[in-house]
Amino acid sequence: MDALAATLLSVVTAATPLLLAATGELVVERSGVLNLGVEGMMLTGAVAGFAVLAAGGAPAVAVAAAALAGAALALLFGLLTLTLLANQVASGLALTIFGIGLSALLGAELVGTPVERLPRLSLAGLSELPLVGPLLFGQDPLVYLALAVLGLTAWTLRHTHLGRVIRACGDDHEAAHALGYPVIAVRYGAVLFGGAMAGLAGAYLSLVYTPMWAEGMTAGRGWIALALVVFSAWRPGRLLVGALLFGGVTILQLHAQALGLFAVPAQLLSMLPYLATILVLALLAGGLRRRSEAPACLGKPFRPPA
C-alpha cells in the first residue's frame, strides 16, 4: 500500500465515527428532538461491542450489540423527554454523564484486553488495485454502512412520506399532530435510530479505529458530531463534506508536522480541523443561498392536546 493510499485511508477512518454519530443525530434533530447524549451513547456502544467481541462473539454480533446498547440508552432519553417531558438539554447532558460512568463500570474488567481488529473488505483483484483498490474496495464494513445509511437518510428525508412526516414533526409538531401524525411515536423512532447510530460510531472506535477498550476513549468525538450537524445546517450532503473535511484536515496537519512543513506552533495546526470545517460549512451555507433546514421545533417538548 503506498503512502498516499494509506493517508487517504486514515482520513476515511477519522471521518467515519463522526459521520455515523452525526447521521443519527441529524435525524433526531430533524424530528425536533435535541439529544446531547451522543458522547455517552457512543461510549456505551463502544464498550458493548468490545465486550461481545472479547467474549468470542462474531464481529457482526458485536456491531449489532453496540447499536442495541446505544439504542437502549436512547430509549431512556426518550422516556425522560418524550413521555415525561423532561428538559431535553438537561436530559441529554445527564445521558452523557451516565453513559461515561456506565461504560467505565461495564468496561472495568476489559481494560487491557486485546482483540482482533474487524476484518477489512477484501475482493479478489479489486482490493489490490493501486490507490483506488484499498480506498474503494478495501475499507472496513462499517465505512460502507456509514455511507449507505447516510445516503438512505438523505433520500428518505427528501423523497419519502416517512421523511416528510419526520420533518413535519420537527418543523411544527402542532400541525403534524393536527394532521393525525403520531408525533411522539415518530420522535421515539428517530431517537432510537440516533442511539443505534451513536452506538455504531462507538463500535467503530473500539473495534476498528483503535481495537481496545479504555474509559473515555471517544475523547470528545460525540460533541464534534453534534457540532457537525449544526454546521451542516441539518443537510446530509454537507454532513459528509464536514466529516471528511474534519477528518482530512486532522490527518493532514499530523502529516504536515511530521514533514516539518510549516514553521508554526503545533497548537495552531491542531486548531485547523475546527477552523477549516466551520469556515467551509459557513461558506457553503452562505454561498449556496439556500436556507438552513433548522427544525423550528428543535428541543421543544410536545404535549398532545387532550
Binding site: 481496545m212 475523547a219 499530523l254
Partner: peptide, 14 residues
Amino acid sequence: VWVNSWYDPGKEAD
C-alpha cells in the same frame, strides 16, 4: 508529531 492531548487513542493512532 504533537497531538495536543495526553489521551486521545484515535488521534494518537493517526
